[in-house]
Simulated assay, not measured.
Amino acid sequence: MKGLYCKLNNDSEDVKFVIHQTNPPQSIGDHQVKVQVKACALSPVDTKASSDLKLQKDLIPVGREITGIVLQVGPKVSFFQPEDEVVGVLPLDSETSGLCDVVFIHEHNLVQKPEKLSWFEAAGAIRDGLKVYTALHTLARMAMGHTLLVLDGASPFGVMAIQLAHYHGVKVLATALSPEDQKFLEQLRPSVARVIGVWDVKVDLVDSCLEETGGLGVDIVIDAGVRLYEEEPPSRHQLPHKHDIITVLGVGGHWVTSENNLQLDPPDSHTLFLKAASLSFLNEEVWGASCVRQGRYLHIMKDVMEKLCTGTLRPLLEDPVPLYEATVSMEMVQKKQVRKRVVIKL
């Protein structure tokens, strides 16, 4: 059984993607489900997360967001039966690539896929949907009337955050990293109240946010990474500085960050204290890395599927990619050379 795997070189940042032959398990576990994969979405491989959790291997399976048909269930499986259509996320310690024809996965990592939802759309939305729910509901406690700032709003995650926030009656401000992004985000009105084109050196993020909120600041900020220092590599120049984010936060605001190396100096902490603001770290792998709140994890995935059916959430996807182009596509995803979510059609 062939699948796509990430091969680490001496430098953990230097990776190569290879097609590798593996042998499927001879028997199915008590709570496992055997799934014939129909579509698999590609996301960058986080080698640091694997290392931190002591899951580092010579070959790391690639492609974890899958949709497919149940072929067989273990003797103690209660949620599924053969012929069910399912969607889910393979765990970090999975031995199998999601691009294999067949995968074995624990039933608690799957939910039913609605019949009218395509394999392609379900696979492409499950990861970003899970991440958006975690950021806005679990961490930020979003509520009607709040003001949200989404940084890099034209990304697949950013678009879904805008859609979910607008659905709940939240005023959304979004940043655009390029003129193309700005044009795209302008088309999302009225979901987006204001697009802030940070690609233009004349536009100031702090002034724009304070102007839009009458000087009060925003209730929630979701970043896509931040600059910790004034001088950083050119690839990070368009990221906002941490001081800018702290400045635009209103009293009682929530900052949700995906910057895992965030460092705050005492003056930064004091400013957050004066505003009674909170800081949360957005780790999208936390649900699969811990067995705590498993029911909430499944509830979120089910709700994402329901909102896809009703059109509340609409993922930002590339056209379906055939399996023979998976290696090239994954290299582009890893290098962040594609803006939309890539889904492989099996």
Results as ranks from 00 to 15, higher is better:
residue 202 K to P: 04
residue 119 W to I: 03
residue 99 L to R: 02
residue 131 K to W: 09
residue 187 Q to E: 10
residue 75 P to D: 11
residue 107 E to I: 00
residue 201 V to Q: 13
residue 169 G to S: 10
residue 64 R to Y: 15
residue 170 V to M: 08
residue 130 L to F: 04
residue 131 K to G: 02
residue 207 D to T: 00
residue 132 V to M: 01
residue 196 I to S: 11
residue 171 K to N: 12
residue 178 S to A: 07
residue 121 E to L: 11
residue 111 V to W: 05
residue 88 G to L: 04
residue 78 S to I: 09
residue 82 P to G: 10
residue 87 V to S: 14
residue 189 R to T: 09
residue 207 D to V: 00
residue 93 D to Q: 13
residue 152 D to K: 08
residue 210 L to Q: 00
residue 201 V to E: 14
residue 96 T to R: 04
residue 160 M to S: 13
residue 186 E to C: 12
residue 130 L to K: 00
residue 104 F to P: 01
residue 104 F to Y: 14
residue 134 T to S: 07
residue 85 E to T: 13
residue 136 L to Q: 03
residue 64 R to S: 11
residue 89 V to K: 10
residue 196 I to T: 04
residue 76 K to R: 11
residue 72 Q to W: 07
residue 152 D to N: 13
residue 188 L to V: 11
residue 81 Q to N: 13
residue 198 V to A: 02
residue 113 K to P: 12
residue 73 V to S: 09
residue 187 Q to L: 09
residue 139 L to R: 14
residue 89 V to T: 08
residue 152 D to E: 14
residue 166 H to Y: 10
residue 197 G to T: 02
residue 109 N to F: 15
residue 206 V to P: 02
residue 188 L to K: 07
residue 179 P to K: 09
residue 116 K to P: 12
residue 159 V to Q: 14
residue 200 D to Q: 05
residue 137 H to G: 07
residue 125 A to Y: 06
residue 153 G to N: 11
residue 148 L to R: 01
residue 110 L to A: 07
residue 150 V to K: 13
residue 77 V to W: 06
residue 178 S to G: 08
residue 164 L to R: 13
residue 196 I to D: 11
residue 158 G to H: 05
residue 157 F to P: 15
residue 208 S to D: 00
residue 136 L to V: 01
residue 101 D to I: 01
residue 190 P to K: 02
